[in-house]
Design a binder for these strands. Structure first.
Length: 607
DNA sequence: GCCGTTTTCGGCCCGACTGTTTTCAGTCG
């Protein structure tokens, strides 16, 4: 069992205990341990093997025993008993913003409701307001919450799907009769939410794929089993589609299964316009041929029929990240290779035709992380340990940006602590040779639009990120006034997680993203791509708009644990989906150039 | 349920906002 699956099991235990009415500190112990497991760099299974489960912070005798049972049997009697006691629908209700466990219990006991469907009906029939302490606003919140949950039903964030996809890829490669495996679909394109994991497998006859995968510990049930297709559901509830093809059809099938549908159709229309058939390009699998039929007769805007194909001699044969043979399909169409992140039918084919595809940023371009938390606020590690982790990633600089004083839950820093932290950072910078720590802060944009420290304090930092953590429910006018004040502030260098959304859990606050981008361009403020796979904020389309406006971007992990510095890859994927080049991203720059770009330093020198 | 250069018991992040209310409980970050 993977750390992620263990974390999910502990989270579920915590949620069910909370619904049961257990004391809050006990509940929190489960949730804390779950988070520790998620961030753990070593697999819990190997810790268990050397009898060291209790070394995990927040795991004592009791939890170690429960984790051990999960690791050895794949099950938990404790969890199964809880599930029998508490209907699972109640846990789903906790995901509705505004509903806590007290309200859910109230609804369950008062109306006998156990599922989201029953809850929705009761809210529509205005029965929720008959319960003491609940009224019409709560009814509205329930309906809106269910609406949000429906949008992401059957979907999981990329941060869950991608590691699982890679795990399945490894397992498939070890099965007799398997020659090649590739992750395809929305995971390969780097989409923020994933409906199902698509894997393409090149197999020889008589392979064991169906038998072995059906019994793999991550698999809960087999949804469908056909000669060339296996559909599974994992214990985390994610759907996995395994497509099995002869080795000769591998590249074309991966190409097909990567999508998106719009991109595929665009390519087929282009082929038709040039008098080519799918078969001429090498796309001879049944799926491609069926799709070709579907697009016949559709016009191709901006293309002359039979226009001659220009050969592009600069094209590399096997671009990084491509499947062997995939680039050739594009080349036969006279196009350079288009990476999966761009295959969204958002103008990439036109750009490729004109030779105007961006030279996309990669993780290797990143030279530092500008948003990280330490033990001074709600991070789990010391500044020294965080810097060491950043250095191991090959970074040249990092910014420690703890929370400001009014965010008490996160132990926001008092002015005295700010000073102490700055002194510690100065000491560390004296000792460290090949990496620089910037003394930063993530300052709260307060409900009235002011910042959480006075200007005299703010101007002393090397770098200031301003973020909204309160007043999420304000109306657009109010939210925008706060954000505008922050963007216009002379000491705000970066706007952190600009929309405040949490994927599948919380909608953005009432923000006009286009206006934010306009203001960022006007004021020279850098906008963040928060790389945490729970956020990915800004998202891909907003990022692309920002690029068009010439707004600089910082890709930051917001890591509260050095283990999460690796989330950078999700931020970079989002940046790539937003067509960003290294030049657009300030943390690909050298330190001197980065510092000179900050608003605080520009204004000093009169730009 | 975890944890301990104050503690093996008694702490554990706490204050603001909001909805439902006549004085506060629940929820959130």
């Amino acid at each position: 069992m993977t750390n992620l699956e263990l974390a999910w099991a502990l989270t579920e235990m915590g949620d069910l205990l909370e619904l049961k009415g257990e004391e809050p500190f006990k509940v929190r112990a489960y949730h804390r341990a779950a988070r520790a497991l998620e961030n753990l760099e070593e697999e819990a299974a190997s810790l268990y093997a050397r009898g060291a489960l209790e070394e995990i912070p927040g795991v004592g005798k009791n939890l170690a025993k429960k984790i051990a049972e999960l690791l050895t049997t794949g099950r938990s009697t404790f969890l199964e008993n809880l599930r029998r006691e508490i209907p699972p629908g109640l846990r789903e209700m906790l995901a509705i913003p505004g509903l806590g466990c007290r309200s859910v219990r109230q609804i369950h006991q008062g109306l006998g409701i156990t599922t989201l469907e029953e809850l929705e009906r009761a809210a529509r029939e205005k029965r929720i307001r008959t319960l003491p302490g609940l009224g019409s606003k709560t009814e509205l919140a329930i309906l809106q919450g269910i609406e949000m949950l429906k949008e992401v039903r059957e979907q999981v964030p990329l941060g869950i799907a991608r590691p699982l996809a890679l795990l399945f890829q490894d397992q498939l490669l070890n099965i007799p009769g398997v020659e090649k495996v590739a992750v395809a679909g929305s995971v390969r394109r780097g989409c923020e939410m994933v409906g199902d994991i698509d894997l393409v497998v090149a197999v020889r006859p008589g392979n064991q794929v169906a038998e072995v995968m059906g019994h793999c510990p991550q698999v809960k049930e087999v949804l469908a089993r056909e000669p060339d297709r296996l559909s599974l559901r994992t214990v985390l509830g994610v759907k996995v589609e395994i497509i099995m093809v002869p080795p000769g059809e591998f590249a074309a099938t991966v190409f097909y299964a990567t999508g998106s549908k719009g991109h595929r159709k665009g390519l087929l229309r282009l082929a038709l316009a040039r008098g080519l058939k799918a078969a001429d390009i090498g796309l001879i699998t049944p799926r491609w041929l069926a799709e070709e039929e579907a697009v016949k007769g559709e016009a191709v805007p901006g293309l002359e029929k039979g226009e001659e194909i220009r050969e592009n001699r600069e094209i590399e044969a096997e671009p990084a990240g491509s499947i062997a043979g995939e680039a050739a399909f594009y080349h036969r169409l006279g196009l350079p290779y288009i990476v999966p992140e761009l295959r969204e039918d958002r103008g990439e084919i036109e750009a490729a035709l004109k030779g105007e595809l961006p030279r996309l940023i990669t993780v290797e371009d990143i030279r530092g992380d500008l948003h990280m938390h330490s033990r001074y606020s709600d991070g789990v590690e010391t500044i020294a340990a965080t810097a060491a982790a950043a250095r191991r990633r090959g970074y040249r600089y990092l910014a420690i940006t703890d929370h400001s004083r009014s965010l008490v839950v996160a132990r926001g820093l008092s002015v005295e602590q700010v000073k102490a932290q700055r002194e510690e950072i100065a000491r560390l910078n004296d000792e460290l040779e090949d990496i620089t720590i910037l003394a930063g802060i993530e300052v709260d944009i307060l409900a009235d639009g002011s910042l959480d420290y006075e200007d005299e304090i703010l101007k002393e930092f090397d770098l200031v990120i301003a973020s909204v953590h309160t007043g999420f429910r304000q109306e657009e006018g109010q939210i925008m006034a706060r954000l505008e004040a922050a963007l216009r502030h002379p000491y705000v260098d970066i706007l952190g997680h600009p929309t405040g959304r949490m994927l599948g859990r919380r909608r953005p606050y009432a923000v006009d993203v286009a206006r934010i981008i306009e203001l960022a361009a006007e004021t020279g403020t850098i906008l963040e791509i928060n790389a945490s796979p729970d956020r990915l904020d800004l998202n891909d389309t907003a990022v692309r708009l920002a690029k068009e406006y010439g707004v600089s971007i910082a890709i930051n992990t917001d890591a509260h644990d050095p283990g999460r510095l690796a989330d950078m890859e999700y931020g970079v994927l989002t940046a790539r989906r937003g067509w960003l080049e290294p030049e657009n991203v300030v943390n690909t720059w050298g330190l001197e150039r980065l510092l000179a770009r900050l608003k605080r330093n520009r204004e000093k020198g009169g730009k």
